[in-house]
Nucleic acid binder design. Structure first.
Lengths: 209, 209
DNA sequence: CGTTGCATGTAAGGTGTTACATGATTAC
DNA sequence: GTAATCATGTAACACCTTACATGCAACG
């Protein structure tokens, strides 16, 4: 393809940044000035539910990059005589760029790396007891995430400016509740299957290949 | 942590490989000898539904790595006088290692990078019409993936040795059907919300921040 | 006769992780 | 007093992608 070097088509040209950058800029766009540490915490608790939480070192890198591009500004804040904290804020250019990104950047297909499904797919080779254990873990993990999403949803409720966060929290809650149920359904299916397999094994000597 | 250099704890020591390697080894474990190109094709059509499909160059790299570790073997096959194809097969050591991995490797939490949810989360800044469009695209994408999963499910039906593949295909079908519905529900919610917003705007001059 | 599929691989570079280094403050 | 939290950053490296290079076979 030849999409590499096109001249500025519009007065407002979007810098070519990874989605992670836009996610971090998006967090800044809610208006609260934040340190890298703050971004990481918020990222772990909320972004994590539907996107993913970058490593702390990555967060610092993204913030520096945003500042380089003029999309954010930072101030060194010294409260007492502690080590100064660097506090970031979105800039007007950052707001414009984010809006343009939301409006024009193509939406990449969501990425799912479902390690549990992968194991299940290879289930023929696996120990049924292990599969049971994996699905119980998955069920538990999903329950926790659903609960976490619920807390966030309730936390952002009745503040109209958080309507979209609330909407996504609600979506995430349903998503993880479905995951929770899915794991249990799969558990039941596997118990049927391996029950049959064990019966079959009485009549079979080696695995077919 | 000091988990870097530990001596062999067991006779059967697992090589430390990324999950992608195990996924590729898993594909080989179904018994069919495959070229890198074959692996990529299968990866695109099936693995993609629940894990993700590595780039072709990555597939070749993984296959080489598996062979280095003795988990797979390869043969150069020359059918006519075409360029020879390198055909990979799982080795007995590969089977043992895969089984051990399935049995003992900790299951990393599934990773979701939901680009649509990310955009929605930042929806306050976005153009409602654009959000509509994104959700319609997402609905369509999910419908296609559900259909794809269904075809695979039907294809593996009634072959008992494919029971787990069928199970995962069924799970994937439900997953994407849920995604499909989710997108439509969100669409409806957004129409309510932005309907209200537009009405509100008659009484408001600037966005709150 | 041009596009798609089959087929393999290298090179360059970006994305993102873990480990390391450092140190103050707060809570138990 | 010791563990957790707050806070910032560097270094090394693994993972993975895109672009490039190459070329035959089959289909339309």
């Amino acid at each position: 393809m030849t999409a590499s070097k096109r001249p500025a088509r519009q007065a407002r040209e979007l810098p070519d940044l990874p989605i992670t950058s836009w996610a971090v800029l998006g967090m800044l766009s809610f208006g609260k000035p934040m340190t890298g540490y703050d971004v990481k915490k918020w990222s772990d608790s909320v972004l994590h539910l539907f996107y993913w939480s970058p490593a702390l070192s990555q967060v610092y890198l993204e913030l520096r990059r945003l500042e380089e591009h003029g999309l954010a500004t930072s101030d060194l804040v010294t409260d007492n005589d502690v080590r100064p904290r660097r506090v970031y804020q979105i800039s007007p250019e950052g707001k414009t760029a984010l809006d343009l990104w939301l409006d024009t950047a193509p939406v990449e297909p969501p990425v799912l790396k479902h390690t549990v499904a992968l194991r299940l797919w290879l289930g023929q080779r696996a120990n049924p007891e292990r599969l049971r254990q994996i699905l119980l873990e998955q069920n538990e993990r999903s329950r926790e995430l659903a609960a976490s999403a619920e807390r966030i949803r309730i936390g952002s409720h009745r503040y109209p400016q958080y309507a979209f966060q609330e909407l996504v929290a609600e979506w995430a809650q349903k998503y993880y509740e479905t995951e929770e149920k899915s794991a249990l359904e799969l558990l039941a299916r596997i118990e049927e299957m391996t029950g049959l397999t064990e019966a079959d094994e009485l009549h079979r000597d080696d695995n077919p290949e």
